[in-house]
């Protein structure tokens, strides 16, 4: 058995709203092994980004545990947290709004180095900035440029450079390629792959784009309204999806090929509100196979097949 780098146990994040409690993340359980990429997919509002942030304690979890290398980081005080965050980084979705427009490329990449007082001398700092820029494929001449002068792909490279400048072990990739055109998207995905191999990084890859998630992930967790409904190796999920939601989600992906025949499952309605959701299975209202029983209690994630977990009482 390879060792687990990260273990998430009963993680919950609720937000108080005027209309009631918003169950953004409701009882997540999963592990990520060292060097692995776990894909977290779902539609907008399913809680995938909140989950990523709660793991890093960018959102304080309502309850539950995040165990990193055997230690529960939800109990850490702020100085311990600052230390552990050198190892845990995040890359954000929108390379336009996640970079400070008033800082130059070198200042953006240097900020984590300053904050953590990694280097004593300016020269060491400068060298590290150049090294990191080279690693992510940013030309040296851009060192004093500002984000607005650069295209989306280069900006996302800055975001990645900032994340790896402290030599982390674990990175939450929060929709890192969603704002990019397909050609640029492919370049960034290749870069992430190279970095993972070179530095043995572990990724939590959050995305709504299933073909991208399939491409990068070893295992995939599918989320619906704050809960994981299916978790398995990515091949298994794509070859034999078991949860009715996963099946519908996969069948809805437009595939750029002609002369293929496949069944399309069109779900009725929209994702319901995560504020005070009804008891029972969260997917009940849109499920093709729903039965009255499904309304009674929330199905637990159970191992149906080897390493294939599904939360559905019909299986």
């Amino acid at each position: 058995m390879e060792e687990n780098l990260l273990e998430v146990k009963n993680l919950k994040k609720y937000f108080k709203t005027k209309k009631g409690l918003l169950y953004a993340v409701d009882d997540l359980n999963f592990t990520i092994k060292k060097g692995e990429t776990l894909g977290l997919v779902g539609e907008s509002g399913c809680g995938k980004s909140t989950a990523g942030r709660a793991i890093l304690r960018l959102h304080e979890p309502t309850s539950g545990h995040v165990i990193y290398e055997g230690k529960d980081i939800t109990k850490y005080n702020s100085s311990e947290l600052k230390n552990i965050r050198k190892k845990m980084q995040i890359v954000f979705q929108d390379p336009y709004s996640s970079l400070n427009p008033r800082l130059s490329v070198s200042e953006i990449i240097a900020e984590p180095l300053y904050v953590n007082k990694i280097y004593k001398s300016k020269i060491e700092n400068e060298n590290r900035i150049r090294e990191v820029m080279d690693i992510v494929g940013l030309e040296e001449r851009l060192i004093n440029s500002y984000p607005h002068e650069l295209d989306g792909g280069r900006r996302q490279r800055i975001g990645i450079a900032r994340a790896i400048s402290l030599q982390p072990e674990f990175i939450v990739m929060d929709e890192p390629v969603s704002a990019l055109d397909v050609c640029i998207q492919a370049q960034i995905l290749n870069l992430m792959n190279e970095l993972q191999e070179k530095f043995g990084l572990t990724y939590l890859f959050i995305s709504h784009n299933l073909s991208v998630v399939k491409h990068v992930s070893d295992r995939i967790a599918v989320m619906y309204l704050g809960r994981i409904v299916e978790l398995a190796e990515s091949d298994k999920i794509f070859k034999k999806p078991l949860h009715p939601y996963t099946q519908a989600l996969l069948s809805a992906i437009p595939i750029p090929k002609v002369n293929i025949s496949r069944e399309k499952i069109i779900l009725e309605g929209d994702v319901p509100s995560p504020i005070n959701p009804p008891p029972g299975c969260r997917f009940y209202g849109r499920c093709r196979f729903r039965q009255n029983e499904c309304k009674k209690e929330i199905p637990e994630l159970r191992e149906i097949d080897e390493n294939h977990f599904v939360a559905c009482r019909l299986l």
Partner: peptide, 9 residues
Amino acid sequence: DVTIQAQVL
């Protein structure tokens, strides 16, 4: 979203 996209298409 992809399931809504499928409906609209």
